[in-house]
Computed example of a mutant assay.
Amino acid sequence: MKAADIRTKTVDELNDELVRLKKEQFNLRFQKATGQLENTARVRQVRHDIARVQTVLREKHV
């Protein structure tokens, strides 16, 4: 997910996206713990996407 794409979304859409990403992160951690995780790089991608969304949310609140 690109930062430019994130900046075009509204605050409500960003909050929804943040919830979706956190759920995905939880599921990936669960898969990793049980040995079912195939795409290990996805964990890092989701973490970075969460950080991008949180950064844009902070920018929009200021």
Rank of each mutant, 00 (worst) to 15 (best):
M1A: 07
Q45C: 00
E38F: 13
Q54W: 04
L14S: 08
L57I: 01
L37M: 10
R29F: 04
M1R: 09
Q54S: 08
R7E: 15
Q36V: 03
T8M: 12
K32A: 13
D49N: 07
R20S: 06
H61K: 15
K9S: 00
I6L: 15
V11S: 12
Q25R: 02
R29L: 14
D12T: 06
Q31N: 09
T8R: 12
V46R: 02
T10V: 08
D5K: 06
A3K: 12
R47W: 05
A4I: 03
I50F: 12
T10E: 13
Q25Y: 11
M1W: 07
R7F: 01
Q54Y: 08
V46P: 14
R44S: 12
T55K: 02
N15F: 11
E59L: 01
T34N: 15
Q25T: 01
K60D: 10
T8V: 15
R20P: 03
V56H: 08
E24Q: 05
A33N: 10
L21R: 00
E13H: 02
A3Q: 05
A51R: 15
Q25D: 11
A3V: 13
H48Q: 12
V11A: 14
T34Q: 08
N39R: 14
T8C: 04
V46L: 06
A51W: 04
E17M: 14
A33L: 09
R20C: 06
Q31M: 11
N15S: 05
E17D: 13
F26A: 10
D16L: 03
K9L: 14
A33S: 15
H61L: 10
K2Q: 06
I6E: 12
E38W: 12
Q45Y: 08
A3G: 04
V19W: 08
A4Q: 13
I6T: 15
V43M: 14
R20I: 05
V11Y: 07
R7T: 13
I6V: 07
K2R: 11
G35K: 10
L28S: 13
